[in-house]
Nucleic acid binder design. Structure first.
Lengths: 344, 344
DNA sequence: TGTGAAAATGTAAACGTTTACATAGCCCTG
DNA sequence: CAGGGCTATGTAAACGTTTACATTTTCACA
């Protein structure tokens, strides 16, 4: 492997000068710089990352710690982060701490000396854990996490606002019995979306009924299962519209409704959340709440980079990403045929 | 920041002993090891990654270099890789080199001293580039790339086999005019799938017609556009079945067909490729070619780790991942109603 | 009780950089 | 021409580890 020594020797300068030339320091004569850079190119020299990091105590890498790597949300988030990071010459070190507790601690630990800052998404992350695993004042941007004592910076999605918009929209179409298919137990988004759902019901003067809050876990199957559960209710108690806490469940719900011989939206209105690319291509096209996840990732990265490059003060930064309701046909708006069960 | 010196001092041993104790070396007395580890835990010591890497010239990190980070393929691939890597205590450093040439070179360069090996997917990667950017003998696993002079290890998907299976299946259902919606120009998968399509036609005694090879770029829109193009052909030249080179385009095609008032599969058979999770939830459920991408990633990572851990000889390793045809309803098999245009 | 091997520990070099500080050459000014 | 300020370069320490080698301790055995 060719090191800076080799470059220096070949160019006939000291290591220090070689280093300066390579880093475009103004302290080196133009002619020397050119010669050194020329030699470096000829020898195919590239600086050793670890050595550089050790010396400068900067890694030019941001860590991404996620609970999982499954699904569109994470890939979009990563894409947004990576794009922004790459724009400033930063790398991304990826880790997922599927399981809780000790594994998360290990993952955090192993980041020491490998990253300059962290974009972190984990419900398990607490101030106490931070104290044990991260150097004091280590830059962290939280995604979807409540702030901790040490780390107040974060971005989050206006889940409740989105859910409210959806439910109000359904109510506006005349639905009085609106069910929700809930997300995974304990999940942040799930909780917030449920909250938004309940708030909207209250605003619209409707009462929340436990029977209309079907459990789910964000998977297609659970969406289908929830529908079967709802359709097992005695007819007067059945909903006329369903709000699925994400699009996957909405899609599962759609297929279960079809199996049950119900038409969407005529017999049952349906709304999802996330507006995944596929949503518009469903039959009928799915009404959903749009969230620009990659933009969310990009913002998180941008803020972290501001911190790292000294462009931002330590003032706590929290940004709530707004959502937008995308009305298509599954909800029953834009309806060409006549609904059977909904009184308008 | 607490370093190994602090641990050593507090535990009353030399740095060397502290290091050994922390790394569970057998060269240290059990009692000493316990004491040191105790101190380390109390001080919340975690070893500095860069320092360690510099000293051992091992980073315990594998680099992932992809052309892009968009879509299910990449996220699944990354998931498979990360899972396997994490199992052996390795990290993943992610980079995407969207653009070609110099950017790719820079990305490769910047990996020096940061990763122990590389999982690389880029059509632009050549032996010459490798020589310029990577140390000799640097472990690389290629995904979907032709082998180069230095790097022969790689995994790939049996794209042509999958495409052949699909087209043969369609032909077996009686279709004589089978169109393809091609993938992005120059893309590896696209080329292979097209090749499989043509081979299968030949095998079945059908003639390839340029008019039936509609261009596409893997996006939903392009799928819809291709369908409009095909339907613009004079009726006798129109296809009775369409093979879309991926599921996204198949979904776009589905919605364009519906707009045109055609029923799937009665009026037009349809098949996709990739078997994305959503495929089964389409109306009708999409017949597709299943590829287990995360397993592909896992295999690539496993092979790389074998190389890195000295468990495998340098014998070139190439694995072609088989695909499986998943027959649902969009192709016209399992058909309940009668097809209008297909002679069986 | 002395000897030697084995076990435990310590000393210091090495990994490849960056950078504070020292030095050398040069030009300008008085 | 001495002195002082630049500018360009070199020397060497530092970053936090690991590890080859040296040294000390322990302990079994003759």
């Amino acid at each position: 492997m060719v090191t800076i020594r080799d470059v220096a020797r070949t160019a006939g300068v000291s290591i220090a000068t070689a280093s300066r030339a390579i880093n475009d320091s103004p302290l080196v004569a133009g002619e020397t710089r050119a010669r050194v850079q020329d030699v470096a190119a000829r020898l195919c020299y590239s600086p050793h990352g670890a050595a550089r990091s050790l010396s400068t105590s900067r890694t030019h890498t941001i860590g991404i710690l996620l609970p999982d790597l499954y699904g569109e949300f994470f890939s979009e988030l990563i894409r947004g982060i990576d794009q922004t990071a790459q724009g400033e010459g930063f790398h991304c070190l990826l880790a997922s701490a599927r399981h809780t507790g000790p594994l998360l601690e290990g993952a955090l630990r192993s980041m020491r000396g490998r990253v300059d800052g962290l974009i972190l998404m984990s419900p398990e992350f607490t101030g106490e854990l931070s104290r044990r695993t991260l150097p004091e004042g280590f830059p962290v941007i939280l995604v979807h996490c409540p702030p901790t004592e040490q780390h107040k910076d974060g971005v989050l999605v206006a889940n409740d606002q989105g859910a409210r918009a959806m439910v109000r929209h359904l109510a506006g179409l005349g639905h009085r019995r609106i069910a929700i298919i809930r997300g995974a137990e304990g999940n942040y988004d799930a909780t917030e979306r449920l909250r938004g759902y309940r708030e909207a019901l209250a605003e619209c003067g409707l009462v929340a009924e436990p029977a209309l809050e079907a459990p789910g876990d964000f998977s297609e199957e659970s969406g289908a299962g929830a529908v079967r559960e709802l359709l097992a209710l005695p007819p007067p108690e059945q909903p006329t519209a369903i709000f699925a806490a994400n699009d996957c469940m909405a899609i599962g719900a759609l297929s279960a409704l079809r199996e049950a011989g119900l038409r969407v939206p005529e017999d049952m209105g349906l709304g999802g959340f996330d507006d995944i690319p596929m949503a518009r291509y469903m039959t009928p096209p799915l009404t959903s709440v749009h969230v620009d996840i990659s933009a969310l990732g990009a913002r998180a990265a941008a803020r972290l980079l501001d911190l790292l490059q000294g462009r931002a003060g330590p003032a706590p930064y929290r940004e709530t990403f707004p959502t937008t309701l995308v009305v298509r046909q599954s909800c029953g708006a834009n309806l060409l045929t006549t609904p059977r069960r909904v009184a308008v």
